[in-house]
Simulated assay, not measured.
Amino acid sequence: MEIRYATNPTDVKQYDTERLRSEFLVESLFVEGEINMVYSHYDRLITGGAVPTGQALKLEDKETLKTEYFLERREIGIINISEGTGKVTVDGESYQLNKRDCLYVGLGNKEVTFESEDNANPAKFYLASATAHKSYPTKKLPIDDATPTNLGSDAESNNRTIYKYIHADGLQSCQLMMGMTLLAPNNMWNTMPPHVHDRRMEAYLYFDMDEDSRVFHFMGQPNETRHMLVKNEQVVLSPPWSIHSGVGTNNYTFIWAMAGENYTFTDMDHVKMEEIK
């Protein structure tokens, strides 16, 4: 497990490109036959990728968490981002996940494993885990059963569909929120004008991009913005004090995951365009 520490927004003003990327960009989560995870000191969120290509991969990291099992004091959301079908087994009960299906696993489940239906076309499981103090039932929400919310327009280049998986009115959790945004063809912008939510952090996984596509992800305080160039299947860790917006060279999909103090999707502080620099 890689550890990422929290940073001070005043210090971030001095970061060059490489320092910015090393603090906030996760470049290689999805490696065949492995589970890779990053532990962020922003709200203790763990992001990870599991790509099983042989024997089942077990979710564990006792050395980092100092607990008997991974979900002893945590909950986790899991979304398959691959065309390959996969299986997640939670304390002996298995759940099949097709592309864009979501599974929530609550506090107290002792064993979680990942498998692919076809090892030549493996599933890619994206993981987001937050600390938890209450147990909620393990539940699956297929993309076909998720309720879409349509926002934006072609004129603004932000015609998009949002699926809220884990939230107060969806799959119940202790503090983790998780969902997915799909931009329509010929639409490239997300979350502009931007916002911040100082009571929780957010992680963005960009995917469904071809090899040459990129997203310019904008971050930083509204009057001190910075950008990072992001490739397919890379994650940006967004601090609570930072905006999180992006524009792509093509349309793309991203998964957002949040953890922190408040459990209200609309808890955000909007930023006016004239305030952005």
Rank of each mutant, 00 (worst) to 15 (best):
V196A: 03
P239K: 02
T225P: 09
T191S: 10
T253G: 04
V230N: 01
S245N: 08
N223F: 09
P194S: 12
A184M: 09
N250K: 11
W189M: 15
H197M: 11
M228Q: 02
D210N: 15
F254M: 06
M228A: 12
P185Q: 04
Y204V: 07
T181N: 09
V236F: 08
W241K: 01
M192N: 13
E224Y: 11
L229G: 09
F254W: 01
P240I: 03
W189D: 14
S213V: 06
V196I: 14
N186D: 15
A203I: 12
G220L: 01
D208Q: 05
H244D: 08
N251Y: 07
G220R: 00
E233W: 03
Y252C: 05
M219D: 09
R214Q: 13
V196E: 10
N251W: 08
P239L: 03
H244V: 07
M219T: 07
P185A: 04
N232K: 01
M192G: 13
T253E: 10
N250R: 11
P222W: 01
V196K: 04
F218T: 10
T249C: 09
M192Y: 15
G248W: 01
G220W: 06
V230E: 08
V196S: 04
P240M: 00
E233L: 03
F216K: 10
R200I: 10
Y206V: 15
H227V: 14
R214T: 13
D208H: 02
Q221P: 09
M228G: 06
Y204Q: 06
F254L: 11
S213I: 07
S242V: 05
P194F: 02
W241L: 09
R214G: 08
N186Y: 11
N250P: 00
W189Y: 14
E202K: 01
H227A: 15
L229K: 00
V247P: 04
K231C: 10
M201L: 12
H227Y: 15
H244I: 06
Y204D: 11
H195M: 08
F216E: 15
V247K: 06
V236S: 06
W241Y: 15
M188I: 15
Q221I: 04
T191Y: 00
P240Q: 00
F207M: 10
F216V: 15
T181C: 13
L229F: 08
M188D: 13
V235L: 05
L183D: 08
Y252I: 01
A184V: 08
H244L: 11
H195T: 03
R226F: 12
S238D: 11
M188A: 13
S238A: 10
Y204T: 06
T181L: 05
N190L: 14
I243F: 07
H244F: 10
M192A: 08
N187D: 13
T225Y: 02
H197K: 02
M201S: 14
P240A: 00
E211T: 12
P222Y: 03
T225E: 12
